[in-house]
Design a protein around this nucleic acid. Sequence first.
RNA 1: GCCCGGGUGGUGAAACUGGUAGACACGCAGGACUUAAAAUCCUGUAGACUGAAAGGUCUGUACGGGUUCGAUUCCCGUCCCGGGUACCA
Length: 938
Amino acid sequence: MEYQPREIERKWQEFWKKNNIYRVKEDSSKPKYYVLDMFPYPSGAGLHVGHPLGYIASDIFSRYKRLCGFNVLHPMGYDAFGLPAEQYAIQTGVHPAVSTAENVKRYREQLDKLGFSFDWEREVNTSDPNYYKWTQQIFLWLFEHYYDKTANKAKPLSELTKKFEEGGSEAAQAAHSFEGSFSAEEWKGFSDKEKDEVLMSYRLAYRKVGFVNWCEELGTVLANDEVKDGRSERGGYPVIQKPMRQWALRISAYAQRMLDDLETVDFSEALKIQQRNWIGRSEGAQVFFKVENLDTSIEIFTTRPDTIFGATFMVLGPEHELVAQLTTDAQKAAVNDYLSYVESRTERDRMTDVKTVSGAFTGAYAIHPFTNTRIPIWISEYVLAGYGTGAIMAVPSDDERDNRFAKYFNLPIVAVVDQSEYPNAEMGDKVGKMINSDFLNGLEVKDAIKSILTEIELRQIGSKRINFRLRDANFSRQRYWGEPFPVKYDNTGVSHTETALPLSLPALDNFQPTKEGNSPLDRKREWVLTKDQMTRETDTMPGFAGSSWYFLRYMDPQNNAEPFSQDAVKYWQDVDLYVGGAEHAVGHLMYSRFWHKFLYDLGKVPSAEPYKKLINQGMIQGVIENIFMLKERKNGKLTFVSADRIEDYGGEDNFSEIPVYIGFVSNYGSPDSYLDSEGMEQLRNWRNEYKEAEFVTNENGRLVTHSEVGKMGKRYHNVVNPDDVVAQYGADCFRMYEMFLGPLEDSKPWNENGISGVSKFLRRFWSLYYDQNGNWIVDDTAPNSKELKALHHTIKSVNEGLETFSFNTCVSDFMKAVNELKELDCHKKSILESLVILIAPFAPFIAEELWSALGHKESILVSSTYPKHNEAFLVSDSIEYPICINGKKRAEIELPADMSQEEVKEKALSVEEIKKWLDGAEIKKVILVPKKMINIVI
RNA sequence: GCCCGGGUGGUGAAACUGGUAGACACGCAGGACUUAAAAUCCUGUAGACUGAAAGGUCUGUACGGGUUCGAUUCCCGUCCCGGGUACCA
């Protein structure tokens, strides 16, 4: 038989389907292993060659684990809610559900060709009412819980109201955004509406008025991570700050736990650091500064309470609530001018120039709590309303920004930390001795912090405090294509929950958001106004809602009574291996960890963390192949010049670079990429205006192109479709080649320069079983030691490669193995049987085919066990040691493998050549590197 | 700016906890088979020097230094590239 990948692949695809090879059931007789991919958003463009990288890796690992005896859950689904489908609907009128379904179908077809071992019966689609029913349910749970800081977990709201009834707001140690306080009696006297408002600011899913990123062009509010440089990530439209009533999730309540539990998971250190930075814990103090002549005080947060004697002025964020009250009549004009200046600046301006100093004096003074001196109160945009308390004590001697501000506005600077003993210390470093600081004088910074904290608490002007950068997640989108909130409001504005779930998205014709920025759902009045005289919430949930818990639904995808059963989650527990792109390092990963912890608090999942181990696969980039075109036409004709000849035509400045379809280019992606005469002909036919074009080639008749690495995209004419590669080389080859390309976690440009090597390898592998004429040449004779050694070396290194996710080296190991067995002319069944199992996770199709040719009736996945190496076969009879003197090789000696270290040493010293070299010199020590070398130090 | 990665042949890349750098593959060169091409197979392939040859010597992992018998690996400094982040008090 000849190796024909296409036929083999079709055959086994059918076999797997018919025999349900990939269906997985809970099975308590086997240990479980859960391998998860980040599920894709099914975009209209389909998969390109970069998408499957992670899926291939996770599939290899799943198959490997299955062959090792694990019951492996390896599902796939679609993150199907999102903006692109809705934008498409606005443009074309095609309902998002329709276009999404089409895209899903396309994705499925593409995925199927690659031979993945997904259990498609567990497919999940976040836009399916049977799925988002449970997203809505989890939202309601969040809505009906608050965070108890004493128990350090979420608790039902009923417990909170009980506490309010007993002791008012003081009785509850809870995470909240309520301002003010009330007694038990006051609570009891509150109206329903007042109670609703109070409770709202305690809920884990709550509504608040806040400044949000408003994008006029998209007509929607964006999450912080959807905004890049003050512009929308999608489309690049300007984003401004606008107050709006929004749903939010109280993720901040979980900040400390999210930070602590990072220690328990196996993520890359880089990713953990990213998450830690995002959470941004800082320890410091909250201190109150009384305002002169006013019955109010300003609350500040500082990480350097020790420098308080250097506080010579205060700065409030422009949006701080006290600004209006503090501003004196004399300063009113100046302050208002400044406020309008701040308002005129977009988020983008504020971010791009952080060096410009600006601000205004309010005219008010605060009283320094220790020195009782008057210190002026300023406002400036360098103080952010959203962080800490939105106000600072400025210590210009020890903070760079305060220093800049003080110098610019001529405010006094008092040095309080003497850093002369630390020549390398910079301003703000926590080292030095306190000066000009009353009772702190002479103390080291560290001790001064402790000392001042005690004093602050003693005088009751503040307290120790831990602050987090992590802010509550905005959970509202004014969009159609998302989960509707199961919430409605009565005519007093009190919120009520919708208990009949799912609350489905109604049909709609016009997907355009309304002018006021409301969701298109707002147009559907008969849906908005309910039978019980209430008004529905028209916002929908953001994309991260459905993706925050999908991995749990895979465990029990058809459950109609609950999101997932306790039996299922007790068996599958959590995700053992999660594979996905690093671009989700903060967004998705944070939100899903938070949801998981919440579900953990509710006792619905058994583990505090959802993902035990995470691997970030790199991106596969595109190669952009440019050709140089003269800007000026010559004799009315376009002229393309070979990249190595553009100097003859006045250099780069005279040319435009045009990205061309990579299919025309020979050796695309390599340094010597060029168009040959055929390529130039194809280029002529590519576009009408190129028909008459002139080509200036180099001496080899080639038009050298200029390649760069960039995104894969339509505009660069460099999208490589996996279907095409599979059609040409087969799925096994494609899978192995993507792994062979380099380390999984590295980003790398796609090129097909080496794919012929993998293709050749597969045919060579096949030729161990069949000769050129297609005759079966496997024999039953016993293998010799050389053959066994070759096999066991491969088993060892492939197993190691799999465990460490260096799949690229595994592919090399296979190539080496085949080369060796070819050399040995080995066609022995016992060797080849092991080899075919070994390769099965990587190239499942060829493995199945050869496995059945070896006489097995069932799939290799169910009728084989992954080979483990036998140490005995790896030990050589004799070992060749290089003998070195002071690290330099002087001789070689061949010794039996089972010799003791002492004997090896003795033998080495007795070698004639070495004796000559030593020539009576004193031997300091002899270093034996087992099985590697002998080094004599003199 | 700050925080993470990373810099190895013509190319993609290997190298276990410091132990013979460049495995494996692409490309290239030469050869075999062929009327020819494709396919396949064989040989060579870091650089320099040396030898009739087998071979030998030296230099080489961005750059400069250090620790060590021995450094791609550890330490210090410099340069460059990629990613993240942004006035976080």
